[in-house]
């Protein structure tokens, strides 16, 4: 697998179209998922994916082979999504800090709620909540870096994260209880 990727990367560095196609086939699905996380809808996600892959192919010579190639592509996609976010969201709304209730979420939620539904929940968030939540919860960036990336204060990043968590938790809880009652009804 590693050798295969290395050969594909070599081909892409030479600008060979067949290698580019192989690379796209290998990573497009995963990256489409990442783009969907950051985008408000499918159209925006497709735009980000397209721009991201063009960047990957034009800047592939900058990849030095250190670190996972998947991580490198993912960073490019996230950066593309952030560029779009910065263009679209020049005005930031500062929201109040809300503590979210952390008790009600269950581990088998994932058995009940599909990835697609989780994604829909994320996409329903406002762009800034969504971006902060993705960068913190999914990518694992600290608030300080998120604040620099989005040109906001650390406090804003923290408040946006907690607000996003509250909203997502509410939605997950709602959907989960809905499914549970359906299951109970079925059993009855």
């Amino acid at each position: 697998m590693k050798k295969e990727i290395d050969e594909i990367i070599k081909g892409c560095k030479k600008g060979r179209p067949d290698s580019q196609k192989k690379l796209y086939d290998m990573f497009s699905k995963k990256m489409y998922g990442v783009c969907l996380q950051y985008a408000k809808d499918y159209t925006e996600a497709e735009d980000v994916l397209q721009e991201g892959f063009i960047k990957v192919f034009t800047k592939i010579n900058q990849y030095d082979g250190k670190g996972a190639f998947g991580g490198w592509i993912r960073r490019i996609m996230v950066n593309c999504a952030l560029e779009k976010f910065r263009k679209q969201n020049n005005l930031f709304t500062v929201s109040e800090i809300c503590e979210y209730d952390s008790k009600l979420v269950c581990d088998d939620i994932l058995a009940e709620i599909s990835s697609k539904e989780l994604l829909d929940m994320i996409q329903e968030l406002t762009p800034q909540y969504r971006t902060v939540f993705n960068l913190y919860a999914i990518e694992g960036y600290p608030h300080q870096e998120i604040a620099e990336m989005l040109n906001i204060t650390e406090g804003t990043s923290k408040s946006n994260l907690s607000r996003a968590r509250v909203i997502l938790q509410e939605k997950v809880k709602e959907l989960y209880s809905e499914r549970k009652s359906n299951v109970k009804l079925k059993i009855k």
Partner: peptide, 23 residues
């Protein structure tokens, strides 16, 4: 029914394998 306090993890795990085919 184990309780997971972290909504972050739900989304991390839930979206980790999510890879739809782009058009």
């Amino acid at each position: 029914m184990a309780i997971n306090n972290n909504i972050d993890k739900i989304f991390q795990k839930g979206l980790d394998d999510y890879s739809p085919k782009p058009p």
